[in-house]
Design a protein around this nucleic acid. Sequence first.
RNA 1: GCGACUAUAGUUCAAUGGUAGAACACCGGUUUGUGGCACCGGAUAUAAGGGUUCAAUUCCCUUUAGUCGCCCCA
Length: 450
Amino acid sequence: MPEKKSQPKKKEELESEKSEKKALFSSVRGMRDLLPENQPYWNKIRKMVDKVAYDYNYHRIDTPLVEYRELFERTTGSDTDIVEKEMYKFKTQGGDDVSLRPEGTPSVVRAYIQHGMRTRVKPVKLYYIGSMYRHDRPQKGRYREFYQFGFEALGEKDPILDAQIIQLSLRLLNAIGIRRCSLQLNSIGCRECRPNYNELLITYLKNRKQSLCMDCKKRLRSNPLRILDCKEEKCVQVLAQAPQSIDHLCKECKNHFTYLLECLDEIKVSYEINPKLVRGLDYYTKTVFEIWPEGDEEGKGSLGGGGRYDYLVEKLGGKKTPAVGFAAGMDRIAEEMKDKDVRGYEQPKPKVFLAQLGDMAKMKSLRIFQDLEKAGITVAESFGKGNLRAQLKRADRRGVNIVLIIGQREALDETVIIKDMKSGSQEVIDFKKVVDDVKKKLDKIKKESI
RNA sequence: GCGACUAUAGUUCAAUGGUAGAACACCGGUUUGUGGCACCGGAUAUAAGGGUUCAAUUCCCUUUAGUCGCCCCA
């Protein structure tokens, strides 16, 4: 029997309820929950990543969240902010120095070498989806735990691969629903021509040292290329006349870049050559690129980026292997989707609701539910509720077409009331006929809606 | 890591140095076996800790978290 009215609560009960309400924990700073209402965006991103990966022949790889710390120090670069101050590092009980991965590329390259993938058909095309960790100050679009997907093509130096990976990344964003974004492009040379350019730049900057900001004065020694990236007004002015890397490429790099641009013209991809684009990771060579959302003039909310990293494999002890890759931030893409009113992906909603009344009927409805589910018919229900009115209300809100009602009487003679929500008409049918009848009705509704 | 601003119900927002309100959402009801609408009722909040005060949700301090800028990037 359902309770008529809840008894007035005793004082102690009230208090214990109150103390139960108080949350003991919240999520760790910078790490967030992705609630069900957010999932459609994420589902769409994941779905499209898988689809485009399939179309472009990339194969999924999953690597551990935890790697030896040195892997990132030697690849991403020990002078970069990512490694220098943002990496989650710790010692294991066994005394290993490890860290949570701040990005995906080094792990993929490590796996490539470790599993002897150089013997596979080249280029070896791999993609991943996973969480990355950086201990940075959280902000909009910047979390300590964030999600990236990435594509890496190893073992091919032809610039056509650069073009293809750019094509792929734009195509992917497009498939997700982000149509308007800007492709920023630059070439930072190779080990032949970069030192020369570096020197030119240093000489130029040294002569104007007093006009640079504090940070850039330091960068002059540690990482002069990064000065190009500075947003400080006085540095920007100095940089206006600074030598640009694309004007000082060696023959090979120049040809590489020119061919890439021709490829992009061929597929009608518009780009903006950005001489200040250098990227914050040490391993890039030749092509670098970023994709900025519409309206972002400075790349503050960059959706993704990538480039060529021809020396990374050998740096990690592998054979000389040219490679090119791309990675993007899923949190930012989801954010951009919301901004631009791009719809996510949602599973179709159930069209049938199962309502029950009384203990016996409740039990029987479990059986009916199972029969329908096995027959491929998804059914909504609220078995926890006893009263029919509330159940119908819920059925109505969920927008179902058909409600099946089992009450005490029906449970006894193994029948079910099948109710059409639109017309309100209903009939009594036998348990055995439920699946067939529901199927017929659904077919009919489907036809009518076309 | 530095600076600025913010913190009230599940959510979005009110108000006040003395009793904290609404909307939406949630739960229940409107002759306990029939939905949408309507009506009625209910539960739920001043982030945490300290200080000033007869009295603090309101003023002050600390902490925590969020937002934004710097920095960095995804």
